[in-house]
Amino acid sequence: MATRELTPAPARTAVPPARRTRRRGRDGRSAALYLAPAAVLLLGVLAYPIYQLVVISLYDYGQAEAAGNAPLVFLGLENYADLLRRTQFWVVLAKTLGFAAVCVVGSLAVGTALAVLASRVRAVPRMLLFLAALGAWATPAVAGSYVWLFLFDADFGLVNEVLAGLGFDGMAGHSWTFGTYSAFGLVAMEVIWCSFPFVMVTMYAGIKGIPDEVVEAASLDGASWPRIATAVILPMLRPLLLIATIQSIIWDFKVFTQIYVMTNGGGVAGRNLVLNVYAYQQAFAGQEYGQGAAIGVVMTLILLSVTALYVRSQRRSVELT
């Protein structure tokens, strides 16, 4: 599917030159007309805010400046230099990347596994599986975070109670949100829980879209099940997997609510800060909008480059197969 999209349509070149320009002119005009509403919308809600973000990041822009009570001072790249000089920024960035990677891999693994399961069970269990997944998907992030916190509460949480009941006496009163890794792990589980349904639904649709004949042919040729899965099904699912992965990277890199709620604004001594919460705490709560905008721009750039790298690597491997 993807390979077809990627190869340029050869029909175009056959059109004679004179007619081509005229047609292209007319085509271009109607295309522009059709695209205009989307372009206006994108300019308004995407280009303009990003432009403002970049502009603000070049100024010393706080509450006094916004209220017009202090002159604007143009800093150039000073906000960025300041940010890159801070050790804490690099620590938080590394933690964010690690945390996002775990969440992406986790939700892809869980989502794909459950999609395979869903495609191989009967209708009733499949419906139950989908209902459960949609329930997790539909839960608002704040509500989901609190439910998980209650479950893992040190004194009253169900998890500790069950573990203590099973004989793990040390678990009574154990605080899950205190240790750095334990808190990150808990939040990662919650993030995976609320983001796997998207992966699962997408992959399920992909699996259902694979013609039975292909699989049948492969098995007639004597391919084993693991071989069919890796050499036939997976390559055919790759375009969908690509979309699911990019979506997950974007979501999980930008996690805010879960960390903010579950670790109480970044954990003890800020050990569980991720970039988004860090930006909020350092800049927006402190009303240093210029500094916050700089973090926003840096985040956008990182996200774009990670995604671009990933898309490129995938595109190359798709072309090879």
Binding site: Y51, Q52, V55, I56, Y59, Y61, E65, A66, A67, G68, N69, L72, F74, Y289
Partner: peptide, 10 residues
Amino acid sequence: GCAPAQSGST
């Protein structure tokens, strides 16, 4: 618009 918005002084 090459400077961020400022509201008029109080």
